[in-house]
């Protein structure tokens, strides 16, 4: 039981680390002829991937997965609020630029 649970935690850490390393690939592919350029696709992907990681950390490491429905719903609601606030203000800034 214990070994199985710990193997699950290892898999979660590997997943989170793989996404983190994946950011390097995203960053490289966003360069045009070596120059850094602004990119909505990269920005939205980076934010969404980070929030996915937060959801995994909450669910697995913080044990929200096994928590009462209220806490699980609250955690999900918070992810949605964070996403809406960050992306909403990003696009508002783009529109005002």
């Amino acid at each position: 039981m214990q070994t199985k649970l710990n193997r699950r935690l290892l898999a979660i850490w590997l997943l989170l680390s793989a996404i983190t390393v994946g950011y390097v690939w995203i960053d490289r592919s966003a360069n045009h002829h070596g120059a850094r350029t602004a990119s909505t696709v990269v920005t939205v992907s980076a934010v969404v991937l980070a929030l996915f990681k937060v959801r995994v950390i909450m669910g697995e490491f913080m044990e929200v997965r096994g928590a009462p429905t209220l806490l699980r719903r609250l955690a999900d609601l918070w992810i949605v609020i964070m996403a809406a606030t960050m992306l909403g203000l990003y696009f508002a800034g783009k529109a005002a630029a």
Partner: peptide
Amino acid sequence: VETCATYWHTVDFFWVLIFALLYVVR
């Protein structure tokens, strides 16, 4: 023990967001 762990994980996920926003966002 779980309360302290919850705090530590929160420090972790705040960094996950800060990393994406400062280093990766274009």
